[in-house]
């Protein structure tokens, strides 16, 4: 799919956010990826033209960051954290189960184009280990069976809701969010979960709180 006028117009609007146009290259690459499911050569040429860069300069950026894909990604990008903590607490088993179920390995896409599977690095959610992501939305505290169920339901077109975010859309939709983050979905995902509230609940149970401001004790 080519980058149509509307995508180009959105790209141009990104430039406005920054004092210097080159800063827009990352969100523009996210946007290109939302339109094409990958960062194509054509997209890099378009971005280079808009920002008065060489395509080498854009390629240098596009190939540095792991979220930019230079090959088409499936409808859903499934990530399993296999860094030490998640991996050894069960992420390895989750990943293995998904490999079995999908019949693909790391950085591979199912024949039907539905899923690309990746081992991913730490997602800043170690308290929620083992962590899986679907189109980068959190699917916390997974087991092999829960993870397989997630992809099975997605494969059947059923709604799957992120544990701390909105209902799963697809990879391209998330990439659009990364370019235009105020997507109206901030209210999804609810309030803080058990892990985020763990300490606060203990404090409440034990009657603990921060000390009052000196002179304002009541």
């Amino acid at each position: 799919m080519a980058l149509d006028e509307s995508v180009r117009a959105q790209m141009a609007s990104i430039v406005e956010r920054y004092p210097r146009s080159r800063s827009a290259v990352m969100p523009m690459l996210h946007l290109a990826q939302s339109a094409e499911g990958e960062v194509s050569d054509e997209a890099m040429r378009v971005i280079a033209d808009m920002l008065d860069l060489t395509t080498a300069e854009v390629t240098a950026v596009a190939t540095f960051y792991t979220m930019y894909k230079r090959r088409p990604v499936g409808k859903h990008l499934i990530g399993v954290c296999t860094n030490t903590l998640c991996g050894l607490l069960g992420g390895d088993a989750v990943y293995a189960a998904l490999t079995d179920r999908l019949g693909v390995g790391h950085d591979e896409t199912t024949a039907d184009g539905m899923f690309t599977l990746e081992r991913i690095e730490c997602q800043a959610a170690c308290t929620h280990a083992p962590v899986m992501t679907v189109d980068w939305e959190f699917m916390d505290c997974q087991t092999p069976s829960s993870a397989v169920e997630v992809v099975d339901r997605l494969a059947r077109g059923e709604t799957v809701v992120s544990t701390r975010g909105p209902a799963i859309r697809d990879f391209e939709a998330t990439e659009h969010t990364l370019a235009f983050p105020d997507d109206g979905l901030a209210g999804q995902g609810g309030e803080a979960d058990d892990m985020m509230l763990a300490g606060l609940r203990v404090a409440h149970e034990l009657g603990m709180s921060a000390p009052p401001v000196p002179g304002q004790e009541s």
Partner: peptide
Amino acid sequence: GDPMLELLER
């Protein structure tokens, strides 16, 4: 002034 040669990948 010809940045057509760049470091790619990581």
